[in-house]
Structure formats: C-alpha cells, structure tokens
Design a protein around this nucleic acid. Sequence first.
RNA 1: GGCGGCAUGGCCAAGUGGUAAGGCAGCGGUCUGCAAAACCGUUAUACACCGGUUCGAAUCCGGUUGCCGCCUCCA
Length: 479
Amino acid sequence: MLKIYNTLKRKKENFEPIEPGKVGIYVCGPTVYDASHIGHARSVVVFDVVVRYFRAIGYEVTYVRNFTDVDDKIINRAAELGVSTSELSKKYIKEFYEEMDVLKVERASIEPKATDHIGEIIGVIERLISRGHAYEAGGDVFFAVETFKEYGKLSGRRLEEMQAGARVEIDKKKRNPFDFVLWKGAKPGEPMWDSPWGKGRPGWHIECSAMSTHFLGHNFDIHGGGKDLIFPHHENEIAQSEGAFGERFVNVWIHNGFVRIDQEKMSKSLGNILMIKEILKQYHPEAVRLFLVSNHYRSPVDFTHQSMVEAEAGLEKIYGLLHRIEENLGSSERGDDEPGPGSLWKGFCQAMDDDFNTARGIGLVFETVRQLNRFMDDIDGKGGKQDQAKLVLIRADLIRIGGVLGILTEAPSQFFEQRQADLLQRKEIDVALVERLIAERVQARQAKDWAAADRIRDKLAAMDILIEDRAEGTTWRIK
RNA sequence: GGCGGCAUGGCCAAGUGGUAAGGCAGCGGUCUGCAAAACCGUUAUACACCGGUUCGAAUCCGGUUGCCGCCUCCA
C-alpha cells in the first residue's frame, strides 16, 4: 500500500485514487523568464520519479505540468531585454526542455501554457464573482479571502494571525490586505486580453486553478510543487478552486524541500544560484539525479562538490557492476523478455511505498551491488546456468529500479566510454601519449623491469591517469 | 511578532516504540611484482542537551540550545 505525506493533513496517509488504477497529478511548472537552477531541477526530478513510480506499479497517470508564460517577472525581463514576452518565454521554454532532456526527465502528459487558457481563466473568475468570492475594483478583480472560511487550511495559518507582522503591499483597492489579484487591468505595453472587466491579464494563482481543473476535473488526486509554494500560491489555489466549484479541490498535496548552498536556500539576493546548465558542464546528468534522490524529497539537501563527487562514484560503482555482469555473461544482450520482478524490486517498492523513500531504496541497490560483486568473486567467471540466471534476474531489477529513478539508462560500456570522453575533454589529456606510455610500461613489465614500470605509472598518475592491470590486459581511466 | 521543519559515527544519509540500513573517507586484510578495481573485517555504550512516560525510546511528551524555512517573487 502506497503511503504519501499529505501537506494538508500533515501526516502520511494511504493513497486512495479517485478512480481505481488511475491518478491525476498537477505540478506547478516554471515561470519562464530565466534559465532554470538546481532547485527547479529537484522539483522536476522529484515529481518525475513520483510519476515513474506510479506507472511502474501499474497506474495510468495523467501528469499535468504548466508553464507560467505571463506575469510581472516575464514582463519586466522582456522590457529590459527589449523583446516581446512571448519571445522571451519561448526561449526559456526551449531551454527548459533541453535541460530536462539531458536530465532524462520525461515529458508530462499535458504541458499547458497560461496564455493558451485565458478563456478558462476568465471562466473561473466569473464563477468566483457570481458566487460572491471575488469583486471587481477599477479594472482589477480580487479574491475576497474573508469569504472563504477555510482560507489558511493548507499552510496552517489563520487570517487574524497573519495580520500583525505581515509584509503585505498596501493596495487601497483591496477590501482585506490578503485579498489577491485574479485579473490585472492592462497597463500600456503589457500583454493583454479582452475580458468582462476590460483588457488585462490573469494573476499568477488563478492560472493553476483554471488549468488543473480543466484537465483533471474539479477534484483530482495529487498536486505538487516546492515547499515555498504552500503559501500563498497553493493556499490561494484552494480558495479559488473550491470557491468556484464548491467541491474539494485536491486530495493529496505533495511538497518537495529546497536545495541549499552552504546551509542556505538559494536566492538571487544571496547570489548563490546554481544554474542547471553550469552543473551539467561539471557532472554527469545521472549523477545529478542520483544525488537528488539520495535524500528524502521533503528534506532540504545541500548541494556540494563533495556530494556530487560521491554521487558520481556511486553511479560508476553501479555501472561497474552492470559491466561486470555483462562480462560474466559473455554478452551485453538484454532480451525483451526480462525476468522478474525479483526480491530486489519488491524491497525497492516497499521503500517507495513509504512516501517515496528513494534514499532507502538506493541503500538496497548498493547493498545488492556489494553482494553481487562478492557472488562474482566467488564464482570467478565459472558460473553455471543457475548462477547466470541469478545475475540476469538481479540485473533486470536494477534496470527496473533505474527506470524509476531515471538512472542506469545507458549501456555500461557506453557509459564508461562517454565518461572517458567527457573527462578527456575536461582535462585535455593526450590519448596518444597515454597509450604510448602504457605500451612502454607493458614492455617493461614483460621484462620484469618493475622500477621502469612504476616510473611510468607515476608519470601517468601525475596526468590523472589511473591504470589497472587485469588478466585481459592493462586498462586506464581518468581520475 | 505569527506559523512550521530539522539536529543520527570524520562527511553524506535511512530508520518514528523493541535494541542503530546504505554510501564516501579511514584503518587492517584477501588479491596483485607493487598497485588499481573488487571483496572481507573494523569504526556510533546509545542518535544536540535536560527531564518525563514506558518492561523497553533515536523514535512519544515537556523544556533548553542551535540551524533552517514560510509569512514578499520563489522549485
């Protein structure tokens, strides 16, 4: 039984889909006014894993992730750069896709843009006005928080308590300082659409209510996003959606924790933003994913070079095991009729069923890697049919787990070749020289001139080249 | 000021009542000409501190300290 921590209830609860075997998920996607950072990557990867897991255990998933392509930040940025808002958002949507592709994030089932759903947005606002939850004031439309009795139920605040130290902009047009804008009257030069209240554009919160209910129904299973969206964004979504439709909006709210740098949340003011594209220049994309899923999704994670180096080492360790299995089987072929699932997969599912505990699942993977290496040490390449069947079964489970976490998608030999190529480029290593030195060393070793052989090895080590003398010959790799 | 979260070995990190997963690093070994890789062994006398509940607590309750987040755009 899958248990999920529901922010609304502040506890884990058994997941009961509205329709058996199906699940509808809406996750707040990026506002496309700038490149994505590692924090965006975490959120996207977390929900990518959630969706992959639902599918792996047999659910039919409708996954909706939006693009916010009209809002103040986009308008300001576009004005700064002297381009249109649509040009700007188009550029960053393209970039987002490129980076997510590298990170092996699967596309959502539906990826709507706010500007393609102005009609639905206006429809929801009209319902809110007719039901007395919203009011028009000078071309703007506001949601009246006092009309929604449960306002604050997600974030655990009450209106009265928020009044005191709140830092809220004072807008004379608002009846209550916490009223938020549903529709903004147009200012010259801004993108605008016709509406019953004159030309204008939607506020930020309303688009998610409109698009999520449009695609998933007034009541749907899961809504996700970063923890920082709990208030006010998700709180406002609940008020809008339940106010407009008079039904429960979302059953389960899932929120992922932040990525921190040096114990602090990344923020523009601190200047500690790490962009995805910069990170991908330095580390393997699957290592980035492995790092992200090595922690529970609700906890904060510290992004450090050391953690990334460890994640890369871990990834290489698993690929190394897969490679060794292939050598042992004498073939890299993987048939379409993979065996299993076996006990490893079942253990992984137990961890995942406990609020998507990927960290525990990864512990199992490493434990298995060690056991299998030992197993292969023992059979020493002389395994029989049964031994091989065991290897094939566990490999199938590892690949299956990789399919949920979005790792181990490459053939091991290809992974190591690619890795080698990347490092060669990064460290500007002269392959011809390396191979000449190794050839010299092989000769020295054959002549049992150990001193000369070690000298060459030291020289290579100084170039960050590690060599391994194996039965089949000497191989090398980059440190 | 209001609300919430976290504190586990040198580092990272699972574990929410039954006696501390896993990874990295370290140390000792097997293997090796020596290494590397892999494997084996080893490293927490109690999980921030104090007090309480319990046959039994890292896990529950109260308090203290420290760190972080939300309350403003934010994944």
